[in-house]
Write a protein that binds this DNA or RNA. Structure first.
Length: 107
DNA sequence: ATCGTGACGAACG
DNA sequence: CCGTTCGCCACGA
């Protein structure tokens, strides 16, 4: 018998860890996979609570919003870092700063 | 238990 | 097209 993680955070983290390199997913998408289709905000909340050592373990950069874009408003530093990391993995941002879901979307 | 908050999403004007 | 508003869910105080 295996116990599924009861905490929403754990489920979210587990899903994010399973995102293959070179692919990206969205908050809403993660929420659906976690069993709560409307909990996109909670997903973002979970990632915001990541510790520094967790950031090394969890590919948080592969999670973007439904538009295929990076959400940050007041944290351009993180946004730039995220984009940089994704580009290092082969993700291509279009001129609109958007990612093509057909090419890099996961699942 | 209730309230406020947030790395969202979809709808509206 | 853009900016704004409302609704959604989970967590911490």
């Amino acid at each position: 018998m295996k116990e599924e993680p009861s905490n929403f955070y754990e489920i979210v983290y587990k899903i994010i860890k399973s995102i293959p390199k070179g692919k990206v997913s969205s908050y809403g998408r993660i929420a659906v996979l976690a069993g709560s289709p409307r909990a996109a905000r909670a997903v973002g909340y979970a990632l915001n609570a990541l510790k520094k050592d967790q950031e090394q373990e969890i590919p948080w950069q592969r999670v973007i919003n439904s538009e295929g874009r990076i959400s940050f408003k007041s944290d351009t530093t993180r946004a730039t870092l995220q984009r940089k990391l994704l580009e290092s993995e082969g993700i291509v941002f279009q001129e609109d700063d958007k990612v093509d879901w057909k090419m890099f979307g996961w699942p």
